[in-house]
Design a binder for these strands. Structure first.
Lengths: 154, 154
DNA sequence: CCGTATCCATTCCGATACTG
DNA sequence: CAGTATCGGAATGGATACGG
């Protein structure tokens, strides 16, 4: 018997986010979308995922409002999956994941894909956690608090 | 037949990161660790996860170098799981996930947990993707590139 | 208290075949 | 091309019992 748990209703935003886009494929699909991929077959080719599960993931990502479906821009009869604003705002998540992986999961000369600034061709600045007045924060500089109806609930 | 795919050897840092900490529980465990949780039973209580799978996840997180095992600080016979530097550097990932969830997955007055700066008691600054010279970047301002032995490829 | 071992249910995933 | 339908296998998760 679990007393916790309504899975869709976690109070922690981290948990709730992972419930909606934390599965094995969604973030990879979104990563590809940031690369300009929009068509079913392009996602499929890039990810090497089975078509049925790609279809399933795209459907739920549309349902949760991360993608919109639009008619194809080239006039072909098919649809395109384009990120909504909600979807585009996942960018920092993907970038932070990428930066951690680059730093800790690759040997220096190992072949990898990198994300570069169009203007300069340079790598991006590492994402940093900062306070509201711009101070860099370590994990120990923060604490979690429960917010009930807008008021703190120690 | 898949020609892609050596799962541990993806060239994309996003993919490789998700392979190592992208399962359903690891990021939740790490989130709790940022809250100061170190003991098996505390993780278990906080997450409501079965003991066997918690044990399994902690073991692999130690293996990949995200946690260290240390003797308990209170002198009891048991161990503590503390984040390594590699583990602590996941902080921006957890924070970006949290911020996205807060913004898009909660109604304004809905009960949630928030992360506050110890010094000011204020919420954190939203993470932003920036270029090496500090310019804010949108997804379309970036492009992916393959890096082979340190040189650009295509 | 801190796990491990076992067993079972469920979910997820890939391959294939099929439809418009 | 863009999916849907179906099926079997693999991975994952939960409950429980047990041992150090």
């Amino acid at each position: 018997m679990v007393e916790d748990a309504s899975p869709q209703g976690s109070e922690c935003p981290v948990a709730r986010t992972l419930e909606s886009i934390g599965d094995r494929w969604s973030l990879m699909i979104i990563r590809d979308a940031f690369d300009g991929i929009r068509r079913f077959s392009e996602f499929q080719k890039s990810l090497g995922v089975a078509k049925n599960i790609l279809a399933s993931r795209l459907k739920t990502l549309v349902e949760v409002g991360v993608f919109d479906i639009r008619p194809a821009s080239d006039g072909s009869a098919y649809k395109e999956y384009v990120l909504t604003e909600k979807g585009r705002e996942i960018f920092p998540v993907v970038v932070s994941i990428r930066q951690w992986g680059e730093r800790f999961l690759f040997k220096p000369q190992e072949t990898r894909s990198v994300l570069l600034d169009n203007a300069s061709g340079q790598p991006l600045m590492p994402l940093e956690v900062r306070s509201s007045n711009g101070q860099k924060l370590e994990p120990s500089d923060c604490h979690r608090m429960r917010l009930v109806n807008g008021v703190k609930d120690a």
